[in-house]
Amino acid sequence: MQLEELRFGTELLKRGFAKMQKGGVIMDVTTSEQAVIAEEAGAVAVMALQAVPADIRKMGGVARMADPKIIMEIIDSVTIPVMAKVRIGHYAEAQILEAIGVDMIDESEVLTPADEFHVEKVKFTVPFVCGARNLGEALRRIKEGAAMIRTKGEAGTGDVREAVRHMRLIGGTIRSLKGMNDDELMKVAREIEADYELVLECRDMQRLPVVNFAAGGIATPADASLMMQMGADGVFVGSGIFKPQNPELMATAIVEAVNNYDNPEKLVEISTGLGDPMKGIDAGTLKEGEILQTRGW
């Protein structure tokens, strides 16, 4: 077997990587110590960041890709995949992350957007995950090459409401495609500004054609269970792991909750005695400039 016969960065490899994450919890970490805690707790991957979303909200200013030093330290400290975020449209940051060797790039609304257009993700060897609030947004990202979608929710709030709303909206729209003929699908594709072939695929599969995680406000094992019951393939937990009183306990409990999401008796056990979760912000009280989910299109 000669090495030049190998094919890299194919769509199958990118989407396949995302499939290996299913049924798992991806945790935000800012140091290698936190990454080790996440791995110990059973996280399937970590998201390397300069600051968790709740702190990005507090600090204000421009939020950018993390310092490569932090990301490299985290890569060296764990064997699970390491992801990192770039600003929407900032393909230079994405090129840097690819050169570092991160396993997946998150083009994220949590950072300050660099462009009104998103990165052309098909050009990269490394797979991307992107946020979406509705089916049109999800399919536009997939068309650009995203190998995984996460419902946006409202990051850094610890309030699950927006994550629920986005998951319901995507699931509901896909269900409404059932039984539609080709003309009707074309009309939907135009209305939601999405590629017709992808809309067709959603009708037939009755789900998104790529893995779909929930994100943005998940703070407790019950929140994780709720999102899994709504059809998420797994969850991202940002500030919800390292903001609570006891991160180790919370991290393990959320992993267990994803695995036992449909077992209320087990969830009682899992949810008991975890200490205070993150305090959080009611997402309904955010002012216009504080809302992250409306970044991107």
Binding site: F8, G9, L13, T79, P81, D103
Partner: peptide, 17 residues
């Protein structure tokens, strides 16, 4: 050996004998 070929960037398809 885990991740014997590297990170996701080095993931590949190949025709195996």
């Amino acid at each position: 050996m885990r991740n014997a070929f590297g990170s996701q960037r080095e993931s590949f398809e190949a025709d195996l004998k």
